[in-house]
Computed example of a mutant assay.
Amino acid sequence: LGQAFFSLSLGMGTMITYGSYISKSDNLVSSAGWVTFSDTFIALLAGLIIFPTLAFAHQPMDVGGFGLVFQVFPIIFSQIPGGYIFALLFFSLLCVAALTSTISLLEVPVAYLVDEREWSRKKAALIVGFLSFVIGVPAALSFGGMKIFTKIDFFGKFDFIFGNISLAVGALLICVFVGYVWGVKNAIKEIFSGNHKFKIKPLWVFSLKFLSPLAVIIILIFIKKLVSG
């Protein structure tokens, strides 16, 4: 769930922030569809590459996240011809992906401070970036840097809270806000400004007001039972 929300930038305000920068005439339905399709296609393609590779290298199939990237992949790269080159390319691209994701996430609080608090963009970016760095230090040191951080496992707790719970709750609150506070009529008006043939309007409204919130609530309940059990 967390990966799905994160890869699509849902529940964190990123899409709302970047959506405020586009033109009124842009087709929101088409843009959202292409983003979702591309993200899902790349994820499936990655799965078709990763799972056979894990089987070839005799690695466990249930590994994921940090362990997959920084523990299993180096072993796999060491076992294939030209593995050092592939490892260099992979981790270089991973750094680029992490950097671009960080920039997009920082834009949310930076845009708020610039627009609502009238801060300069430089000041907002520096302060938000510094605070993010400080908050991330305990997670970065959870793998042996300092015993207290390793013992508490800040990385695991941050990953669970922000990667699973917060994004789902954020998406739930956005559904409630758009569906019941801001209003479906206003949302439809924005969609129609760039797309006058919104054929799935009834399905979208039903999903926004009922289906999506219910699905997120069920998943959150399942996560709670999984943790407590």
Score class of each variant (00 low, 15 high):
Gly83Glu: 09
Thr40Ser: 11
Lys24Tyr: 13
Val69Tyr: 09
Ile161Trp: 14
Gly2Thr: 01
Glu118Asp: 14
Cys95Tyr: 11
Ala124His: 09
Trp204Arg: 07
Leu208Pro: 00
Val35His: 10
Val137Phe: 09
Ile161Leu: 15
Gly82Val: 05
Tyr18Lys: 05
Thr100Met: 14
Gly2Trp: 02
Val205Phe: 07
Ala111Arg: 08
Phe86Asp: 00
Pro109Lys: 04
Phe73Asn: 01
Leu126Val: 14
Phe198Val: 04
Phe70Trp: 10
Tyr18Asn: 03
Val178Tyr: 13
Ile127Cys: 02
Val134Phe: 11
Gly144Asn: 03
Leu1Ala: 09
Asp26Pro: 01
Lys197Cys: 10
Pro109Gly: 05
Lys185Phe: 04
Ala32Cys: 09
Gly136Tyr: 04
Ala215Trp: 12
Leu167Asn: 00
Arg121Trp: 10
Val35Cys: 10
Asp159Val: 07
Lys185Tyr: 06
Gly11Asp: 04
Asp159Ile: 14
Leu8Tyr: 01
Asp26Ser: 13
Ile223Phe: 13
Val176His: 00
Val181Tyr: 12
Val128Glu: 01
Leu89Thr: 07
Gly82Ser: 03
Pro74Asp: 03
Met146Ala: 13
Ile85Gly: 08
Leu131Thr: 11
Gly82Glu: 04
Ser9Tyr: 03
Leu99Val: 12
Lys157Asp: 07
Tyr21Glu: 08
Ile85Arg: 05
Lys185Ile: 02
Leu203Val: 11
Phe206Cys: 09
Ser132Ala: 13
Tyr18Met: 05
Lys197Gly: 04
Ala4Val: 12
Gly19Ser: 07
Ser228Phe: 13
Cys175Asp: 01
Met15Ile: 15
Ile50Phe: 02
Leu45Glu: 01
Gly11Tyr: 05
Leu89Asn: 02
Val108Arg: 02
Phe70Tyr: 15
Ser30Arg: 13
Ala57Cys: 10
Asp153Tyr: 09
Ser228Asp: 11
Gly179Phe: 01
Ile219Thr: 15
Ser23Ile: 05
Gly194Pro: 08
Thr40Cys: 06
Val35Gln: 14
Ile161Met: 12
Ile85Glu: 07
Ile223Cys: 00
Gly82Met: 07
Met12Ala: 02
Thr14Leu: 10
Val205Thr: 10
Phe149Tyr: 06
Ile161Lys: 08
Asp39Glu: 07
Phe5Thr: 06
Trp119Asp: 00
Ala57Phe: 07
Ala168Val: 07
Val72Arg: 03
Phe192Arg: 12
Asp153Phe: 08
Ile161Pro: 05
Arg121Thr: 13
Tyr21Asp: 04
Phe77His: 09
Thr36Met: 12
Gly229Met: 08
Gln79Met: 12
Thr14Asp: 01
Val205Tyr: 06
Ile42Tyr: 03
Ala98Val: 11
Val134Met: 14
Gly67Ser: 13
